[in-house]
């Protein structure tokens, strides 16, 4: 969120960011693939202090039926923040303006990678539940949802990752936390398909110059290699059960 604030905290202390990170340093990311048994696919991510659970159901019957498409599946997405997820209570956890918007953009991200034409007349449901929020929940949610979709066996063109890049003063920094998100000069979440660098989500709060935007893109693609590796490692780990090593699951 841009704009001057009366109580703006210092975001750069001794050349480092508020949480002691470098400008191009990600927070710690940990992904668990398919923690839930009843969903078709699921993933749990801990991205810094963010804790997010993503679940996939389907393909299943389209509800309401008139939305059914005989050429492809219908994708539905719900992003929701738990009442206890942030510092100030969120009140009731139903859909609000922000959640509706984020659900829509996440749906559009995955519509471009899921091979929906393989499941005509059906519906795929994607649920992203934010249990604890600390800035960058939509990007962490997309990263988790990609893993959840992979564990559901739904054919996809790519394993999408997302990360935010923003501007503090004249310097760019990657992966904003809540304080940076609230008081920085600009914030740009990006979702990318690593296979060909296709940009599937690009939103921005605040202002950046043309040169800064292209530098931000480079930073996101650079950090994406790390995020992608963590995603794929999480998937391999969930299935890396070797003979004689039965206690792992």
């Amino acid at each position: 969120m841009g704009g001057p604030s009366v109580n703006k905290p210092e975001l750069v202390i001794n050349g480092k960011r508020v949480d002691g990170r470098e400008f191009n340093e990600l927070r710690k990311i940990k992904i668990t693939a398919s923690p839930l048994v009843n969903a078709s696919g699921s993933a749990y991510i801990e991205w810094g202090n963010n804790k997010i659970l993503a679940g996939v159901y389907g393909p299943r019957e389209v509800n309401p039926r008139h939305l059914a498409d005989s050429t492809k599946a219908v994708l539905k997405c719900r992003y929701s923040m738990a009442t206890f997820s942030s510092l100030s209570e969120h009140g009731r956890s139903g859909p609000n303006r922000r959640a509706t918007e984020i659900s829509k953009v996440i749906k559009e991200v995955f519509e471009n990678v899921i091979m929906l034409n393989e499941y005509p007349d059906s519906q795929i449901d994607l649920f992203i539940e934010v249990l604890q929020a600390d800035g960058g929940t939509r990007t962490a949610g997309i990263t988790a949802a990609a893993v959840a979709l992979a564990t559901s066996g739904i054919p996809m063109r790519d394993l999408v990752y997302a990360v935010s890049v923003g501007r503090i003063g004249e310097r760019l920094a990657i992966d904003f936390n809540m304080i940076e998100d609230n008081y920085s000069d600009s914030d740009m979440p990006i979702a990318i398909a690593p296979r060909n660098g296709e940009v599937l989500l690009l939103q921005m709060d605040g202002e950046m110059t043309k040169a800064q935007v292209s530098e931000a893109m480079d930073m996101a693609i650079g950090a994406g290699k790390t995020i992608s590796a963590i995603q794929r490692e999480a998937l391999r780990e969930a299935y890396a059960l070797m003979p004689g090593n039965t206690d792992k699951q």
Partner: peptide, 22 residues
Amino acid sequence: TYSKVLGMYDGAGRGIIPLEGA
């Protein structure tokens, strides 16, 4: 050529065996 599922692949002509799915 890219994989479209999470599966097992042994490099031979058998294709990718999906690990999950409906």
